[in-house]
Simulated scan of single mutants.
Amino acid sequence: MLQTTAALIVFLFPLAYSPGPGNLFFAANAARFGFAATVPANAGYHLATWVVTAAIGLGFVTAMDQAPQLFAALKTAGSLYVLWLAWKLVRAGALEGAQQARAASFTDGAVLLVLNPKAYVIIALMFSQFLAPAEAPRLWPVLLITTIFTLNNLLAFSAWALAGGSIAKLFQTPGGARWLNLLFGAVLAAVAIWMLLT
């Protein structure tokens, strides 16, 4: 099992640490509000990650295969949700939003994961590679893979948030905060469009 765990981590490393919707979302929030403010959303995202991953590993992928329209609906809903978060960030800057803006919440983090169909694809691919079809009982291998996947993502997103938090120190004035909101709002909008088109 140790060899499988090591192979799984190597498989997941480029997926988790390369730029993607999740890491850019947390980097943008940390840049605007600081690293500590991202903790609730990070917790929400990764609690949802663990639950969704375990569900897929225990058979949810079969339901998705039988209802491809669900995948398309999640893809659209997820893109629109990230676009909405980007609009809130941009608008906060335009309104001198130091008092009006707020960091992403636990719920925002959970919704971001649930409405991200790319996560479902990666999770299904991971189980197809690292869970033997005839493995019995399946519960413990699924829970182990789920936990490794979740912790790996948590570390990656925290690293991106730390990088974003260090950027925030460069923007201490109201004018700087406005430009920061516009910049990272644009990044999140680009992520939303990327999620929608790919």
Rank of each mutant, 00 (worst) to 15 (best):
T147D: 02
V90R: 14
F106T: 03
K118F: 00
P141E: 02
G165W: 04
R102K: 12
F106N: 02
V82Y: 05
F149Q: 15
A92H: 05
L83W: 15
L95F: 13
G165I: 12
L125K: 00
A63D: 02
A48T: 03
N116Q: 02
V82D: 01
S158Q: 03
I167Q: 11
D108K: 03
L151F: 14
A110N: 00
Q99P: 06
V142A: 06
A94I: 07
L139K: 04
Q129N: 13
L80Q: 05
R138V: 09
A72F: 04
A136T: 12
K75Q: 11
E135L: 15
T49V: 11
S166D: 09
A134H: 12
R138C: 02
L58A: 11
G165R: 06
Q66R: 11
V142S: 03
P137H: 07
Q100H: 07
T146W: 07
A159S: 10
D108W: 03
W140T: 15
A168I: 01
P141T: 07
L47T: 00
A94S: 05
Y45W: 07
L112I: 05
A63G: 13
N152V: 11
A77H: 03
A43R: 11
K118R: 00
V52H: 05
W50E: 04
V111R: 11
A72H: 06
I148K: 00
T53Y: 15
I145S: 05
L58S: 09
V51Q: 02
V51G: 08
L89D: 00
G57L: 10
Q100F: 04
L154Y: 05
V82T: 14
F157Q: 08
L85C: 09
A94Q: 07
T150A: 14
V142Q: 08
V90A: 04
F130W: 14
L131N: 08
T76C: 03
A92D: 12
T147H: 02
A92N: 04
A159W: 10
G44R: 15
A41P: 08
A104H: 02
P137C: 03
A119D: 04
T147K: 01
V121N: 04
T147F: 13
A43E: 15
Q100D: 09
G165T: 03
A163I: 14
I56T: 15
A134E: 09
K75M: 08
W87T: 09
A134Q: 13
M64L: 13
A104P: 11
P133F: 01
K118C: 04
E135G: 04
V111N: 08
A110V: 00
A77L: 13
L70Q: 05
Q99Y: 15
A134Y: 10
A132E: 08
V90E: 11
F130Y: 10
W50F: 03
P117A: 02
V111Y: 12
E135V: 10
G78D: 12
G59R: 00
G57F: 14
E96Q: 12
A101I: 08
